[in-house]
Amino acid sequence: MSEPKPDKQRAILDAALILFAERGFHGAPTSLIAERAGVGVGTIYRYFKDKDALIHELFRELHARARERIFADYSLEQPIRERFLFIFSRVLRMFIAEPREFRFMEQYHYSPYAPVAQAEIPEESELVRQLLAEARAQQIIKDAPMPVLESIAFGPIVALAKEHISGRQPVDDELIRLTVEACWDGLKR
């Protein structure tokens, strides 16, 4: 028996991303993913144990891709504020440039799948949390629990990305700068 072709796996992942972003996890059965990918349903199971494994693999791939995009040229030598502005400007730009990936990642973050991912992602790769923890320890930002700090940092960025993706608010460099600076100002002591 011949090995499955990797291009079929790529087609499955690409189709799953489109359908999960458009319909959600429950609204995208494997039969629809297979149809969109141009493969038989059984082919999905040659690459993935089940739909959950497909979702987790897609998350791992998108997380790694996002990390590369966001942290390219990132320097720990910069002051905390500049690092924050650098990271969150990149995050917002990525959300706007890749709306399907943004929708998938947001959906994943708020799903029962997220705790599995948290266990798999090494803590040292969580540079955003490290940055916020460092700023909190140095008393640069509020002394609040990490979920509160993350909500203050990400909330406006997520909202603006959604406004842009829906077509209600075009986003340019100046609006990105203002939004990210406002997030920083909201975190400051």
Rank of each mutant, 00 (worst) to 15 (best):
D172F: 00
A161Q: 01
A34R: 00
I55H: 06
K49G: 06
S31W: 05
S89D: 12
F71G: 10
A182T: 06
A64W: 11
R65C: 08
L85P: 09
L160E: 08
F104M: 07
I12C: 08
E77Q: 14
F86N: 08
R136N: 04
G42L: 07
K5C: 12
S75D: 14
E150S: 06
R189E: 14
F71C: 01
E101V: 01
R129E: 15
R81Y: 01
W184L: 00
L62I: 01
A72V: 13
A159T: 14
A64I: 05
H56L: 13
Y113A: 02
W184A: 09
C183K: 10
F84Q: 11
M146F: 05
L178H: 15
L131Y: 06
I55K: 08
A15V: 07
K51L: 08
I141Q: 11
R103T: 02
Y47Q: 04
E124G: 00
D185Y: 13
L131Q: 10
F104V: 10
I176R: 04
R177V: 14
D73M: 02
I176C: 10
P29W: 00
L76D: 15
K142M: 11
G42V: 05
L175Y: 09
P147I: 11
K5Y: 04
P79A: 04
A159K: 14
F86E: 03
I87L: 04
R36Q: 13
I96A: 00
L175T: 09
A161P: 00
D52T: 08
D172A: 12
T30Q: 13
R46D: 04
T43I: 07
V128F: 02
D173P: 11
Y74M: 04
S111F: 06
L32A: 14
A144L: 14
E124P: 00
G27T: 08
F84I: 10
E98W: 00
E3G: 02
Q138M: 05
A97G: 12
H109S: 15
E123P: 01
I157S: 03
F25K: 01
A11S: 10
E134Y: 07
E77L: 12
P115Q: 03
S151K: 12
E106C: 12
L187V: 07
L62D: 00
P156K: 06
R93V: 05
E61D: 15
D52Q: 12
V41M: 12
V41E: 14
A135H: 07
R90W: 10
Q118T: 15
R100K: 15
E22I: 03
F102Y: 08
P156D: 09
S89W: 02
R67E: 14
F86S: 00
L175S: 03
H164S: 15
I55D: 03
E163I: 10
L54V: 09
K49Q: 04
K49L: 10
I121V: 09
I87H: 03
I141V: 11
P6D: 04
I176E: 02
I33W: 02
R60G: 09
D143Y: 02
L32M: 15
Q78C: 12
R36D: 07
I33H: 05
A21T: 09
I152R: 06
D7Y: 13
R100V: 02
E181N: 03
Y113E: 02
A119E: 13
A135T: 02
M94Q: 14
L132P: 03
L19P: 01
P147L: 05
Y110L: 14
R23D: 11
D173R: 07
I70G: 04
L149V: 02
L54Y: 01
F95M: 09
G40T: 10
L85E: 06
